[in-house]
């Protein structure tokens, strides 16, 4: 019995959300009196693998296979299943991501495991194995008991504050059998923003809505985001109007985020938008309409014109 954590690489580095998952997994291992093993798929440097130990893994399994460099959910799920059998793992932890969501489902099918998605706290072991997970896009939580022998948890960002130590974990080479049947989906083209902070991973997010009046005005949003090292996001109408790409749309039918800080500029705060962002730690709302419903769900508010306020905030950040 052990806890296995899938550590996802992004351009050769373990994602921040995965470091959080490793730490979370090490705490679950403590709770259950076992050890945490981190699994890294694809080529990664020794420095990166060492991070897994510093965030709580007692052991690191590394499959350095070029065929696994591309995040292929089917092949990854097969590799994780093999590691689960090898290690005798009963609890599998993944940080929620586009890739992890697809993997976790395939894995649940392979292992006949109970799967709880969007978990936001450590499990409660006082009666069975219970987790608290976010449902209705954060409008409610379900206390869910996992009754199968094998359990898979995908955890939301900011579920736990990870602590880094100077612990060193041994790294073992892992050679999963790669099945050609897992490689039948061909990737013909990838278009991805580079150099920007990925929205689901971002600690700070600056988001804007129709109050910006047009895509040509996004410079003031991007400037504030750049000054804060934040990701940019937008409301659904803005993505529907093609002012911004769909992968920036946050809300009930877009990406759900839980950063430390969410700054909403010129967004009125419809219930569907709030659903996607209400688990942010701190919410700031800037809107010229003092009646905007978003102010009721905010921690800080400024009633003012975004075209005046945003450049001044950018300047204030640079002067910090």
């Amino acid at each position: 019995m052990s806890v296995l954590i899938f550590a996802e690489l992004e351009e050769g580095a373990i994602k921040k959300s995965s470091l959080e998952a490793i730490y979370y997994g090490s705490k679950v291992a403590e709770q259950t009196g076992t050890t945490a093993t981190a699994l890294v798929l694809g080529e990664g440097s020794a420095d990166e693998l060492a991070k897994a130990g510093r965030f709580g893994a007692a052991k690191v399994l590394h499959a350095s296979e070029t065929r696994l460099n591309e995040g292929n959910a089917l092949a990854y799920a097969s590799a994780v299943a093999e590691a689960v059998h090898q290690e005798g793992a009963t609890i599998i932890v993944l940080a929620k991501s586009s890739l992890a969501d697809s993997m976790a489902a395939r894995l649940a099918g392979k292992l006949k495991a109970g799967l709880a998605a969007n978990v936001i706290e450590l499990p409660d072991l006082s009666s069975g194995f219970r987790v608290k997970r976010s449902i209705f896009t954060g409008k409610a939580f379900a206390i869910t008991e996992l009754t199968a022998e094998k359990k898979i948890l995908t955890i939301k960002k900011n579920t736990i504050t990870p602590e880094e130590t100077d612990a060193v974990a041994p790294v073992e080479a892992f050679k999963p059998a790669l099945n050609d049947s897992d490689f039948t989906v061909k990737v013909t083209n990838v278009e991805k923003a580079t150099g920007d902070v990925l929205l689901p991973e971002a600690d700070l997010v600056v988001s804007a809505g129709r109050g910006l009046k047009g895509p040509e005005n996004w410079g003031i949003v991007e400037n504030l985001a750049k000054a804060l090292h934040a990701a940019t996001a937008c409301s659904k109408p803005v993505s529907d109007l093609d002012w911004r790409p769909h992968h920036e749309h946050v809300g009930q039918t877009g990406i759900k985020i839980s950063p430390n800080l969410y700054i909403a500029c010129g967004i009125s705060g419809a219930i569907q938008h709030l659903a996607g962002v209400n688990s942010s730690k701190v919410i700031v709302v800037i809107n010229k309409d003092s009646e905007a419903p978003f102010f009721k769900s905010a921690d800080y508010g400024i009633v003012g014109d975004v075209f005046d306020v945003l450049p001044r905030l950018t300047k204030a950040v640079k002067e910090l």
Partner: peptide
């Protein structure tokens, strides 16, 4: 393989601290 034992609603946020635009 999973069973929901109970539900919770998110805690309400505290009051919103308003900052005058002139002191943004």
């Amino acid at each position: 393989l999973t069973q929901i034992s109970s539900y919770e609603l998110p805690p309400a946020r505290g009051a919103c601290k308003m900052i005058p635009a002139s002191e943004a």
